[in-house]
């Protein structure tokens, strides 16, 4: 579904991604793990073509997307949920969803408003409220729903559990599992290993923009030194 090879990205002068390569299979949920500043968000933005990688390539579902404008990547079925949520705060929830709407596409679950409101019941109650009147958790739900309106094949979730209440985090985990069951391929970036393990099939750990580990969670458990070096204290 996605093949990333030797990606190098810069942010001004800072070299953020360093020859990053990994693969994601169809229907898989992969967690991109690493500490703050490890390069997770830049990876997500580079996949979405919001940051232009200086070298390397990204092949999505057989198409080389490196160098395409972001909207073309989105039209090919790449869905992006940013870390800062970036909902349109002056627009109502329904209008936010409308911005994300795209035609259904082959090989991806097709979403309707009804299906999304069933998935995120809170949003239905507040459908005519403006984005700025929502809590952090609701905003997070809305960004995911907005991206799902584009009927993506692959969903990029940047730090979905960040800054939201534990209860919502659980709800978020259930949602991601449900999306996987619908047949969606998902990449989530996370700092919270516990959360990642609940939802993902595989972990890719990065540090300083380089890949340090790529494998299943059970494999990771066998290497506590990796976990200690790159994930926590």
């Amino acid at each position: 579904m996605l093949e990333v090879s030797a990606l190098n990205s810069f942010y001004g002068k800072a070299h953020i991604l360093n020859d990053l390569s990994f693969k994601v299979e169809r229907g898989e949920v992969v967690a991109l793990l690493g500490r703050n500043g490890a390069g997770k968000t830049t990876t997500m933005k580079s996949l979405m073509q919001l940051v232009r990688p200086r070298s390397g390539q990204v092949i999505f579902d057989g198409t080389r997307i490196t160098g395409l404008p972001a909207h073309k990547a989105a039209r090919l079925g790449l869905g992006y949920v940013p870390e800062e949520r970036r909902i349109f705060s002056d627009l109502t929830i329904l209008e936010n969803l409308e911005v994300g709407r795209q035609r259904p596409r082959e090989g991806a679950p097709a979403w309707t408003l009804e299906a999304l409101f069933e998935l995120f019941p809170n949003l239905w109650e507040r459908r005519n409220n403006r984005g700025k009147a929502m809590s952090g958790g609701e905003q997070q739900m809305l960004t995911i729903a907005r991206t799902l309106m584009g009927n993506p094949k692959l969903l990029l979730l940047d730090e979905p559990s960040e800054g939201i209440a534990p209860v919502i985090v659980e709800q978020m985990a259930r949602t991601i599992v449900r999306l996987k069951n619908e047949g969606l391929t998902v990449i989530i970036s996370e700092q919270n290993l516990h959360f990642a393990r609940m939802v993902a099939d595989r972990a890719v750990i990065i540090e300083g923009g380089e890949k340090k580990f790529d494998g299943s969670f059970s494999e990771l458990e066998k290497h506590p030194e990796i976990r200690d070096a790159y994930l926590s204290v």
């Binding site: 979405m48 919001l50 404008p69 972001a70 909207h71 989105a74 039209r75 992006y80 940013p82 970036r86 349109f88 705060s89 002056d90 627009l91 209008e95 936010n96 409308e98 911005v99 994300g100 709407r101 795209q102 907005r146 991206t147 584009g150």
Partner: peptide, 24 residues
């Protein structure tokens, strides 16, 4: 209208509108 919604969204965050598949 949809166009109006897109215009208002773009006024606020052009890049995000692009990331949602709208040709800016």
């Amino acid at each position: 209208t949809r166009v109006g919604i897109l215009v208002r969204a773009a006024t606020q965050d052009r890049e995000m509108v692009g990331a949602l598949g709208v040709n800016q």
